[in-house]
Design a protein around this nucleic acid. Sequence first.
DNA 1: AAAAACATTATTGTATACAATAATAGCTCA
DNA 2: TGAGCTATTATTGTATACAATAATGTTTTT
Lengths: 237, 237
Amino acid sequence: MVFNDNYSSPDQLVAAVKETGPNLDIYRQLFDCILEQRLAPNTKLNEQDLAQVFGVSRTLIRQSLQRLAAEQVVVMHKNRGAYVAAPDFIVAQQILDARELIELAVVDLACGSLGAQEIEALKLMITLEQEALDQGDTGTALRRSGEFHLRLAQAAGNQPYVHMLRGLISQTSLIIAMYGQGGNTCARDEHNELIAALVVGDKSLSSSLMRHHLAHIRTGCDFNRRVNSGSLAMVLR
Amino acid sequence: MVFNDNYSSPDQLVAAVKETGPNLDIYRQLFDCILEQRLAPNTKLNEQDLAQVFGVSRTLIRQSLQRLAAEQVVVMHKNRGAYVAAPDFIVAQQILDARELIELAVVDLACGSLGAQEIEALKLMITLEQEALDQGDTGTALRRSGEFHLRLAQAAGNQPYVHMLRGLISQTSLIIAMYGQGGNTCARDEHNELIAALVVGDKSLSSSLMRHHLAHIRTGCDFNRRVNSGSLAMVLR
DNA sequence: AAAAACATTATTGTATACAATAATAGCTCA
DNA sequence: TGAGCTATTATTGTATACAATAATGTTTTT
């Protein structure tokens, strides 16, 4: 049980979180903070500090933390609080394996059965993602990329797939945030190609593209990179 | 808490699983109530009433409801409260499809790689399940059957599979509670055969057995059966 | 000086109090 | 009568207060 107690001071926590606007709900703000590593892996998430930062009571903080814990983006220890998750190499592989399993099942369902409206929505997601990337907002880009995959699952029509994928995407985002090295700008083209193959109804091509797309996540990561907790939390503009 | 614990010895496991009565936590009690249909599908779960019934504050009730909602066993509507989920035919099929996907992946991992200790634990689960069935405690039997599958996933070693399966098993249990007709007493033999095939390392047999096992869930259900929603009063015994 | 026991503080866990929203009942008026 | 409006009640949503547990620091003892 590794408690990394390079616990950032409350001031760091405050600074890390204040970036985001007050209009988003707590869960989303916390999530984005984690994706952008303003809250680094293993960082302790003190409830009172967070409550003050967000200007709400601990009640809402706890709710958000519990939801994040359900998605395994944070880990909660009884009577010891919540910490930003830090999946190691092994677990990261398991997460990516699981995601591939689900995504391939989604592709199987969605192939050839996408409606015109859904296709439009998916293309819009791609545009939005690229937009964020162009502005250097990697956190938002990461989230929107996830939203693209999630929307695809919704179009496929299997409810549990959507639900499971939501959690897996969250964790994948965390993995990319931890180990990624920024060389993932090919994402838009890959998404576009995938959509094209799905629309045409080419099942084997679609599967292949999805497999490669997910493989690129793996190759875009350096799992040897030791992610130090706390120190990166100060990186903010 | 219920499924999450790693038991180091069979004795601890027995104690943990067998425990009954007022010491169980709220989540589990609520869950059991739902499985036994003392809380029927679509029943509104009034927080204050539940708090009084269980002798705790709404805080703990809300926590449990949120967890159940995360597992999609209850549905929450903003400002309108929580209701016992009632998956219709379509969604039920989707749930069972999703479960099959995960369980087959689990079998693939577990086949030939089970340790002696894990095998023992699994066999114990089977015994406990049968014990509950013999006593006519179908709710407990249902839950323990789920715990068997979950433990198998744990033995397989992929963390996300365990997590996803937990939710799917909960929902499957709900489906069986809603549509099942009690003809599922073959479960023990099926579980035993599965374990045998996994130990031997026969992959295709293991997969086949798992597929059939899950198929039996489907055939054991009558999806035309209209389930009438009950009230909270039934929890009061 | 080191270790153990105690006291103090900080943090999480739970209950209660208050606010906001939805549901309901009782009017008013056509 | 009944449709629509208002007042009342019930229920959920949020904040605060209190309790239990863990972390920390200090003293005592050897």
